[in-house]
Every structure is written in structure tokens, then in C-alpha cells.
Nucleic acid binder design. Sequence first.
DNA 1: ACCTCTGGCTGGATAT
DNA 2: ATATCCAGCCAG
Length: 702
Amino acid sequence: MRLTPCAPYCLVDGKLVEAAPSEEEIKRKVEAVFGDLSGEEKKLLTYWVSLLEAAQPRFKYLSLDIEVLSPVSTRVPSPTKARDKVVAAALIGSDGRREVYLLKTPGFKEPKCDQFEAKIYEDESQMLREIFRVIDSYPVVATFNGDDFDMPYLRHRGEVLNIPREQIPISLGREGASLKHGIHIDLYKLFMNRSIQVYAFDNRYREHTLGAIAQALLGKGKIEIEKPIGELTTEELARYCFQDALLVHELLTSDNELLLKLLVVLSRISKMPIEDACRHGVSGWIKSLLYFEHRKRGCLIPRSDELIEEKGVISTKAVIEGKKYRGAIVVDPVPGVHFTVTVLDFSSLYPSVLKEWNLSYETARCPHQECRNNVVPETTHWICRKRRGIQSEVIGCLRDIRVRWYKPKSSDPNVPEAQRRWYSVVQRALKVFLNAAYGVFGFEEFPLYCPPVAESTAAIARYAFKKAVEKASELGVEVLYGDTDSLFLKTTNEHVINELVAWVKKELNLDLEIDKRYRYIVFSQRKKNYLGVTDKGVVDVKGLTGKKSHIPSFIKDAFEEMLKILGEVKSEGEFEEAKMKIAEILKSKYYTLKKGEYNLEDLSFKVMLSKGVDKYVKTTPPHVKAARKLINKGIQVVPGDIIAYVKTKDSDGVEPLELARKDQVDVDKYIEYLMSTFEQVLDALGIDFDRIVGITSLEYFM
DNA sequence: ACCTCTGGCTGGATAT
DNA sequence: ATATCCAGCCAG
């Protein structure tokens, strides 16, 4: 059975039920939260709220992983030919199923394990038929990379073994592998999705392998094996395969089944079946949503060549060479330490601009002569006054729901914990859509590509931002820093802040609100680089080198130690003591390096290879040099891999971690990195770096 | 195969 | 020696 995802129905205990709360109930809730809006707006909001508040289906789900035995251990088994035997398959179900299917091969030994039930088969065909029967009994099956390996392999292997097609529940399509009676979720594709990575998982994983993702999210990884599959004992093989399926299972289960819930919400917003939603990026979701809105209104969807012909105009110049149009403003920070700072944020600035200025591909540069004087500041674009823009309406509506409904409820202490988690899931899903809704219009491959929309959004946001900065100055408040939609003000005067907020609401009809208060904040001369301690004692670090993911942990740890000390500083007077302690940290790290009391792992940089090694033709960055050395040793390296390397005194200056020796380390280079990392904070604190180092060097030589 | 955008920092490679 | 470009990572 295929369900239309946009209808708020769901399966509960195998039965299809209407999941939407009653119309009365929704109307009452909408009235309570959005009572001040117009009847027209409330009608739209009612539709979205009833969709988003619809009950969540509870799925029975299965996690699957298979192992194939190739006679040549270096050859990767081909999923299209499926010549090699499937020797193991682990199946883990949300209903408690924990099974490993094993094929009796030469050297087979009965495995002992209490974690799972071992099911042993003499005949591969019989084993596969049994596995197919289990797969077919679940509505949702999850794999890691099942689209490209496990599913096509099982399908083709089944065909090779002459299993009748109707007994194989897997169908292969252009976009991936599907099930005849269920949904197949390929976690590899899903975790690859940048939006999922950044918004759902807060960028907590970097590498797109099952081991790395599980390690980052669950705190446990794959079972390490040194031998090829064929040389494992039966028990080792079973445990290895089981662990992989278990990781997949726990990724689905963790955080109260967050991933599955998120998929349902994304599917409902994007009007895509879940299977499609997990195989498309955010541009696909938004395309699907906007197409749906066109069809609902009976509107024609323009061809992209027509759209570009009419609306391909760009009228601003980007600050950065090579970009298409001008983006946001970043205010030069006032260097130094500042106490009592308040940060104000425009909530959802870009979506708000889209909404308030009626921005949409059909309203930007509309055909009406009368609208031509409704000009977007700093551009040659004008915006329609006669008709409501589709995108403006849809995104505006989602914005209102996120800002006024889900965001506040997700952190409301009066809401029960479980309910709050649910609000936070929806809130995050909405954020994905809102953030991308602007960007896709500046993306050439997007089918509704319309640069005037992206350009106007950024231009109006700059206009609003500048006005707010001006007003703050008028009110006598110093603006210490600002980036895109935030203002860092040197005041805690509530009266003045309220005045500014009220002015922005009245003049621009935008919501400016207090984001956080800093006990103190440290700026260098650099933009997008600061360190602050909030009124709650939380240390916020933005952009500083010491926080970046590729930096050696030796340096990161030293940096963290410094942050801990800075987090305890409450007043200006306490800085002196903190400075002394920080100097001590630096000295001790310096000695550690000089004495060689480190391990290579802690000194390794970890940088991602963004393309194939042979694709780096213009320059050869250090991590690529290291990757080449790995290849020379016969170690495989592919795009997306993270290369760990240490800086050495040899001719090319780098050595992959796996091949490096301690005596090769270029200690002075590391001292340089340590210095430059700390300098970003210390020069703003007024600590004379050279003096500390000068003393330490002197001490060292004495 | 996949890909929302611009602005800004760093270190190192390469060109002048 | 110095300026410019490339690549990676991050802020918003």
C-alpha cells in the first residue's frame, strides 16, 4: 500500500487511522498562538499545524547487514554479478529479533554467542529464501549503503541461485534499492546529506562511514578486524556482521527514534514519500514542496530556461571574487575585552524578509509597469504589489510556525519532556527548510533558479541590518560587532534594548530579540572569530583555530585548558590571575613538545580529502602529499577519507600518521602552531606572547 | 554521485 | 622575498 505522505494519516498497530487532531482542536490552538494575524493567514497556518501536529506512526523496523566471501580477498564483490557466496547476514528488528544467518563453509565452527541467535544453513539458496521472508515481514528495512551493495547483491544473488523473482522482495530502481512491500532506508545516503549532518546532528560526525558516524553519535564503532573476511573464524565473522547491523539499529533507535521521526516530518513537509525524502538533498525537498503548492493552486510550473531568460539578471557585485552576488554584512569587531555585552538577533531574518517583502520568483521583476517603483535597495530589482508570491507565502507560514509555535515550546519547562523533544524535532526540520529556502534560488541547478530572489533577500537583509545598527548608535549604544543578523551591543540597559526592538518591529516589521548576554567577550581584529563567557558561565568559541576539527588534539587540548580558565573569570580583576595560569599552560606544553613527551596521534592533523588524489592539479596541499604516500604503500584512499598526518623535518614536510616515526617530527613547527592558535586570544587579552615564549626559551636553554 | 547561499580565516603552494 | 591563489574549515 502506498500512502500519500501529505495526508495526515498514519499506521498504528497495522491499521490506517486518520492522524490529525480534530479541526476544532487545531482552530483553537491556532487562535491561541496566532490570534493577531489575518483570517487568510490563519487559514494557511491551520493547514500546516494540522499536518505537523498529526500523530506519528510507529514503525516496526529491521536493520540488515550482509557479508560476502570473495575468493580473492582484495577484490570487492560485484553486486551486479553476485558471483560470490553470501556467508553471513545479520538481522536486527525493533521487535526484538536478533539473528545472524550463517552459511556452512569449509572450516565452519559453531559460534558461541549470547548476543544473538545463530541460524546455520548448509544451502545458500535456502538461507536467502529465509532472509527474504523476514525482510518481507517488515514495513521498514534499514541498511548502511544498502542501495549500492547489500540490496542489489541479495537481489542478484537470489537470481543467480534461481530463486523465483516473486520470492525476492527487493526491487532495484534508478534512485536506489526499494522493497516490494516496504520502505528501504539507506543510512549512508541519509547521513551524507549535509542538512541532516548539520541540523539534525549538529555536525557531530565528519566522515561518512558507519564506523565514524556510530563512534560520533553512539560512542561505539565497528569491530576491528585485521584479516580478510575469508580468514575469520565463524564466530568472528558472526560478531563482526552482527555489530554492523547493531550500529544501524541503534542509529535508528537513539534519541528516542529521532531519525525516523525526522524522516516522517520531512516527508510531510516536502510532500515526498519517505523513501524519496531520504535519497534527496534539501533542494529536492524544496522543489517537491513548491511544485506541490503550484499544483494545489492550479498554476503552471515554469521551465527553467524561460525563467532564466526573464529573470537571469544580477545587479550587485559580490565581495568575494567568483561569487554571483553580494551577501551579508560583517561588522569589524572592536578588538579587546568587553564586559556586559548583549547580543540581539533578528529571528529567522532571511525567511522573514521573504515573507515581509513578498519575495518569490514570480513577484521579483514582475511584468506590471505599476510595480516598477517598488525597488529593492542597492539593486535594480522591483517586487510585485498585486499578487502574493507562492514562496513568500509558504516560507512565511513555516517561519511563523517555527518562531511562534515550535521554537518556544521546544524549550518551555512547562511542557512535558517527551513532548518537548517532539517539538524540537519539528523545530529542527523546519529550520532545514527555512535556511535552504533562500539559498536554492541562487543555485544554478535548482529548477526554479532565480538570482533576483536570492539577491533581493540578501540586499533587504543588509538594509534592515544597517538600519538597526544606525538606530543603535542613535540610541547611544556602541555596536561592538555584528554578522548578518546579529548585533553585539555594549550595554545591558534593558530600556534602550527594548526601544531598539520596538523600533525595528515598527519600522521594519521584523523580530529582533535578545539572543544571549555575555559576562565578557574577547574580540581580536578578525571577523567571525571570538570567545565569550555567557551570563550562565558557558564558554562560547566561534571560528578560532583551536576549535577547528582538523587541528591536532595536542593543540586542541591546550586550547580547552585555556578556555576552562577563562570560563571562571568573573570580573576584570580576575583576569590577571587567569593570564598567569594561561602562561603556565603554554610553558608546560612547550616543554612537553621540546622533551618529546607526546604521541604521534596527538600531533596529527586530520584533513578531509574532498576529491580523488589525482584531481589535485593546481596545488598539492599537505594532506594530499600524505595521501600519495599512503597510496605508494598500497593503502587505498578515496574522496571523503580523512587523512591523518604529522609535520616532519623531511624534504616534503609531512608523513601519514600510519607511517610516521617520532624522531621525524618537526617540533618547532608545532610550537609555531601552538603559538599562533593561542595568539588569536592572547593578543586581545593584552598578554605579550613573545615575552612568555622568550622566558620559556631562555629557561629551556639554561 | 552528489551538490542551498555568501563572507572570512588559516596555512601552504605557486607565480612573480 | 613577496603577492596571489588554492583548499579546508567555519559563521551565519
